[in-house]
Design a protein around this nucleic acid. Structure first.
Lengths: 330, 330
DNA sequence: ATGAAAGCGCTAACAC
DNA sequence: GTGTTAGCGCTTTCAT
């Protein structure tokens, strides 16, 4: 059975299609009586607006693109909840694309966004993306773009993230303040900007405490190696006081080793940068810098909605981070 | 600057719009030469098809709706990766809706799906949804619907899930086979169908081993209570041999307590139903029934694509589950 | 192998 | 306060 259109309602009520449209959209010109008649008829005949037609006519789409490099278990779910939270009382829907950390795929996706006439784009860059040139077509089309979390700063596009080096510095300083000196930093892939920044903060904090930094005090997750075995070897051979772990994923990977060697909490302190979930699922809870996916997602979506209203100038906003101290009192 | 349309290309090449359309879509009637001219011009002028217009004209949308009750950290990311995997070589995009476990919101979302003319719906039901009547409008509109994971079986809609009671039975039997008798089952909200089914399997397995089941041997997560404290009290007061945990979320919640009391692995065996991530992040790894979000997502999306081609009859498919034994050999 | 023309459902001038 | 009309960009008959 064909679905009822505005034309059907118009014929039914002997009104003009435009009157139906106006009544349904709460146009002030329409009399209360007509509006009621139309609304009743629409409800009775289960009228559903055809959004394809509406958006086509209006040259927009009601769509916000969310482009993510991958689905992970900590940051992304929170981010999506945040985006959802910010948009649920708007009339925008989310069309989601996963780039699988492939810059080529990312470029394709930008093409889809243009074809879809999305009204705004939230994008967390793929790990190996190192330029924003593929985003220029969006800018040229006047589509607001906000880079989230995994960002590159440029004068062309606005960003929302945390200050990664600051986050790491804050975390590590918490350790050095306690007089801990033998600190192992655990990091992700080094080609990632975020990794390098967090590494900078890590080194900074060590310098400020006059702890000489040597390459032996970091462990980076490289694609093909056996991280767990490397970590175990390192922890067995060196009497570290403390661990700085740059992300939940890495903490998760490190956990079995730490448990196996029974280092925590007695002989090894831990701090990490985290979305706040995992640190509380470890006993005793782990002190961390809170890096909330929810906050980034929610603020990001709200900012994007703003950008979609009037043209804002490019900004680089950093969400402030704070230390969540979880250690029991001494 | 206005984006180039088919009409623009037509004028440019002194051809008819229909010819352009045909050339771009690989219609066989078009001569190789014309096709090349058109393609070149399209590339030069950065022609992007306007999907709103195309889908409007074609009375479809290229959209698949993914409706989820919530974002969680274990099952959902895998599911989304699976869906993405299955769809990445199709021309379908995913429009995502989160119902926040609110049946009312779920109903609203169904309305959006109709308005968007989505071509198919993948839905995991909200926890408190107990009827499928709100999905009937989709059926009436001829839109294929596939229920994933959190399902209700009915003759009206196809489903893809695992056999939850079987999964639990398999897991618990692994414990009873080892002669373990004092088993505590940890479950989620009891109003959830999935919980009741896993509980059935749990009880079944105990019965089959002639272990008398009493209410004292389960702990259910109720909304407002302090799960961790309850679990701690229970574990302190009763010398359980083993734990059956029905989900990753619950295992995650239970972890700090288990670690605090230092029960695992020496005095407490654990089995759970899991997406396979968490059990390997615990030392030693935890034996589990693999309940893969990725598999459900991927198979689900593939099945939905099938359903979108020809009308399939209603089916209730169960993905087979298997025990992933992680204990070291004795 | 290409052109002409119509129309998908909706909305926004512009009339009255 | 309501009607008339035109058109968004695309595809698809039907013609030639």
């Amino acid at each position: 059975m064909k679905r009822t259109s505005i034309l059907d309602l118009a014929r039914l009520l002997s009104l003009n299609p435009s009157t139906i449209s106006r009544a349904l959209n709460g146009h002030p010109d329409i009399s209360d009586e007509t509006r009621e008649r139309v609304r009743t008829a629409a409800a009775t005949f289960q009228y559903r607006p055809n959004l394809q037609a509406r958006y086509f006519r209006n040259k927009n789409s009601g769509l916000i693109a969310l482009i993510l490099p991958e689905m992970n278990m900590f940051f992304v779910p929170g981010l999506m909840n945040g985006v959802n939270e910010a948009l649920k009382n708007s009339d925008k829907s989310v069309i989601i694309f996963i780039s699988d950390n492939d810059p080529e795929r990312e470029k394709e996706i930008i093409g889809h966004c243009l074809s879809w006439m999305v009204e705004g784009v939230l994008i967390s860059l793929s790990d190996s993306t190192n330029t924003l040139s593929h985003l220029m077509p969006l800018k040229e089309a006047g589509i607001p773009v906000l880079l989230l979390d995994k960002i590159i700063e440029s004068p062309d596009f606005s960003t929302l993230s945390i200050d990664d080096s600051d986050a790491a510095r804050l975390a590590v300083t918490h350790l050095t303040n306690k007089g801990l000196k033998a600190i192992l930093g655990i990091f992700g892939h080094e080609n990632l900007i975020m990794t390098r920044q967090r590494m900078d903060g890590f080194k900074d904090a060590l310098h400020q405490s006059n702890i000489s930094f040597s390459g032996y005090d970091t462990l980076t997750l490289n694609t093909q190696d056996n991280f767990e075995q490397n970590l175990e070897n390192r922890l067995r051979s060196t009497p570290y006081d403390a661990l700085f772990v740059m992300s939940d994923e890495l903490l998760m990977l490190s956990l079995p080793v730490i448990q196996k060697l029974q280092l925590y909490p007695a002989s090894l302190k831990i701090v990490c940068i985290s979305d706040g979930t995992l640190p509380h699922r470890i006993y005793p809870p782990v002190t961390h810098i809170l890096h909330s996916g929810f906050d980034i997602g929610k603020s990001g979506a709200i900012l994007l909605l703003e950008m979609m209203k009037g043209q804002t100038i490019t900004f680089h906003k950093k969400l402030s981070v704070s230390l969540q101290i979880a250690e029991p009192n001494p």
